[in-house]
Amino acid sequence: MLRFLTYRLFSTLLVCTGVSIMVFLLIHMVPGDPVDMMLGESARPADRAALRHALGLDQPLWTQFSQYFSGLFQGNLGVSIHSSRPVSELLLERAPATIELALAALLVSVIIALPMGVLAAVRRNTLWDRGAMAFSLLGVSIPNFWLGPMLILVFSLGLGWFPVSGREYSGSLVLPAITLGTAMAAVLSRMVRSSLLEVLGEDFIRTARAKGMPERIVVWKHALLNALLPVITLLGLQLGVLLGGAVITETVFSWPGLGKLTIDAILRRDYPVVQGAILLISITYVVVNMLTDIIYGIVDPRIRLGSTK
């Protein structure tokens, strides 16, 4: 385990260094000037030059790069060009909203997908199965920018159950979590179904049934636990994506998360914020994947991390 963790930490460091270099170069290569974005059309050339100097944007790219990296190694992500606030402060301000939405969406998807996938597998080729798979197809096909406003129309304006958007009201989380969780549930339920079908055909299931074990125990205890490995992989990947921020859902619901922060920063060419946000997203992704690998070992004790055998 220790060997595994050391290896993964080392590879995380490598990935993050690579991502930082790539993001720094790419964002500086994209057309558009942050000073223009900040000062607008009527700013005078001298004011532009003064601001460019104050922000260090008149320095050669290599100098900016080395300043960024030396700051990074001291734990300093820089200061936002637009709001003059430390990037770390901005990220910390947005992270709770993103974590909250990601966990809630994950919960929604598991609550929908697990029973649905199991039902579809156990009652294979029945109306239940077809219904579940139709939902799955629909869930994958409906884009969030449509589903979100539709949920708002029905549940906020029509029924008045939940607020339209924002994070400051009671129940604000429900609609964005359902919007984001639905598509995930659709993918997940298909995965649960196919994985469970495979396990249900195995010899040990036949043995369990032959021993007279109740079908409920066979499916939920023996089969489902064994079918969970690929589902956990998928969940890990999805959680990594969600923690990076769900841009469309965050925009539709004015959810103040990391995805919205990153997109706004890209559009404004706020270089330090883009760099900091993408670095955080990549670290999150790598860490979540590492945790997924650790959970493998807990779910299936035959898997020993870091073992060469």
Binding site: A104, L107, V108, V110, Y169, S170, L173
Partner: peptide
């Protein structure tokens, strides 16, 4: 046991969503 886990998830989810924001 799995049913209990599912039920707990359901309750936890509902409470979390409704109370998560002030």
């Amino acid at each position: 046991m799995t049913n209990r886990v599912l039920l707990s998830l359901l309750i936890l989810g509902s409470v979390f969503m409704i109370l998560s924001c002030s």
